[in-house]
Design a protein around this nucleic acid. Structure first.
Length: 429
RNA sequence: GUGGCUGUAGCUCAAUGGUAGAGCACUGGACUGUGACUCCAGGUGUUGCCGGUUCAAGCCCGGUCAGCCACCCCA
């Protein structure tokens, strides 16, 4: 007796049926994924973004250098393995890969500004829960070579437009993280402040004070939150250039009519972010998760990965999280056959095969019956498939060359000539 | 990685430590050429897996795996 083989922990199937669901909660539907993807494919090129595809596998060092050794992603969440002496990793995010490809092909020497978008599976070895999976999909954009701030606003407006188009209710949070000039000053001041109140912080934050003090601002622990509320603000430490940049982003967004919430506590977990940071946040529907898309500027990353001093900004959206939100709203597109052929014998089946072929060639979805049965059961089958019309093909129809096209919803029958079926179906309202 | 809850038919769920059930769905028939209604018949199963206690375990105990929820972190 062999054991039934199972999927990998933290991965999930998305199937075009209802009954595989293990729980009552809405789950990702194929139709919603298609809607999200199709909208992106249509919308992103209108903003000048072109699709880029990079490999799922990269050298581990790319992420260590790009994302940062101290981050949770690199420190404990990567799928890393040895490939005959070389360490490889399943990508946990795509920005580092995109920048690697950009540099590898010297794109900066071919065009001063580059706008790419991607749709790609990502892998992070976390404990899964609602809205968080070990394999998940991100749709994102990266704009390289443009120091902003108008590109920042344009990109935020793109995300805003996309989510609105899909009917997702969210709030766009916005913040600035400063840059290499002013962030160290802020970090130092913040650190000094946090050390003075270190007894009030949680155990994790006590460590963060030394490793990554800015993330203490993001802690949900009540004690930490209170300390954070009185902490010095980034805004007081911004250098003139960063201050002007942030003002420019806000001004452009206002001109474009994009509503944002300035959120001083919005920080980013990844080391490479500078200046503009933004997140689309939803009030509910994702369990303890609330971010459906996050983005920001990373002006130091390209250089960090061995390239020239090229600025960049991008966002990544969680496709499954978006699909979960859509599932709670219900609407989904499904493809159903227009004509179902109920054939009563071998000769009729042969004719149905050819008729279905003609309909499909004309762009009309058609399905033939493969099982031998009586008309009653075949009509049941047509109904179960959600077909609009059923056409019973028997001896009589083959002889006369005429058949009745039955509209299943109303029961109305339309007499049609088999030789003229395509035109007849097209002409029906 | 840490903690809590759960695991019985394809799905939703019952069963005091004592013989595994219902609804839905599925297949066929009543209806050898016209579905939705109705009726009848029929698979529905190593009770997640392994071990222990017991005369006896779906039920109690331990382990393990998986799912859910929360922390952490993030999309």
């Amino acid at each position: 007796m062999s054991e039934k083989i199972r999927g990998v922990k933290g991965t999930r199937d998305v199937l075009p049926i209802d009954t595989y669901l293990k729980d009552k909660d809405p789950w990702v539907r194929v139709g919603h994924l298609q809607l999200i993807e199709r909208t992106a494919r249509e919308l992103f090129p209108l903003y000048g973004y072109r699709e880029a595809r990079t490999p799922i596998l990269e050298r581990t060092d790319l992420f260590v250098r790009g994302i940062g050794q101290e981050t949770d992603i690199v420190g404990k969440e990567m799928y890393t393995f040895d490939d005959k002496g070389e360490s490889l990793t399943l990508r946990p995010e795509n920005t580092a890969s995109i920048v690697r490809a950009y540099l590898e092909h010297n794109v900066n020497q071919q065009e001063p500004e580059t706008k790419w978008w991607y749709l790609a599976p990502m892998f992070r070895r976390e404990r899964q829960q609602r809205g968080r999976y070990r394999q998940f999909t991100q749709i994102g954009v990266e704009a390289l070579g443009n120091p902003g701030p108008r590109i920042d606003a344009e990109q935020i407006e793109l995300l805003d437009r996309w989510l609105r188009k899909l009917g997702i209710a969210f709030e766009m949070h916005l913040n600035t993280l400063g840059d290499q000039n002013c962030r160290p000053n802020y970090r130092e001041a913040l650190q000094k402040y946090l050390r003075s109140r270190i007894d009030e912080l949680c155990a994790d934050c006590k460590k963060r004070v030394e490793t990554n003090p800015i993330r203490v601002l993001d802690c949900k622990n009540p004690g930490c939150a209170e300390v954070a509320a009185q902490a010095p603000k980034m805004e007081q430490f911004l250098c003139d250039a960063c201050r002007a940049h942030f003002a420019g982003v806000q001004e452009t967004l206002q001109r474009l009519g994009v509503a944002t919430v300035i959120d001083p506590r919005l920080v980013r977990g990844l080391d490479y972010y500078t200046r503009t940071a933004y997140e689309a946040i939803v009030p509910s529907g994702l369990g303890s998760q609330s971010t459906v898309a996050g983005g920001g500027r990373y002006d130091g990353l390209v250089k960090e990965l061995g390239g020239p001093d090229v600025p960049g900004i991008g966002f990544a959206a969680g496709v499954e999280r978006m699909a979960l939100l859509l599932a709670q709203q219900g609407k989904e597109e499904t493809v159903r056959p227009v004509v179902f052929f109920a054939s009563l014998g071998p000769a009729e089946e042969a004719r149905a095969d050819r008729l279905a072929q003609q309909l499909r060639a004309a762009g009309i979805a058609a399905e033939v019956s493969f099982r031998k049965s009586n008309p009653g059961n075949l009509l049941k089958r047509a109904d179960a498939l959600g077909a609009r019309f059923a056409l019973v093909l028997g001896e009589q129809e083959l002889q006369t060359g005429r058949a009745k096209l039955k509209e299943l919803k109303t029961g109305a029958q339309h007499e049609v000539a088999l030789d003229d079926l395509v035109r007849a179906v097209k002409e029906l309202p």
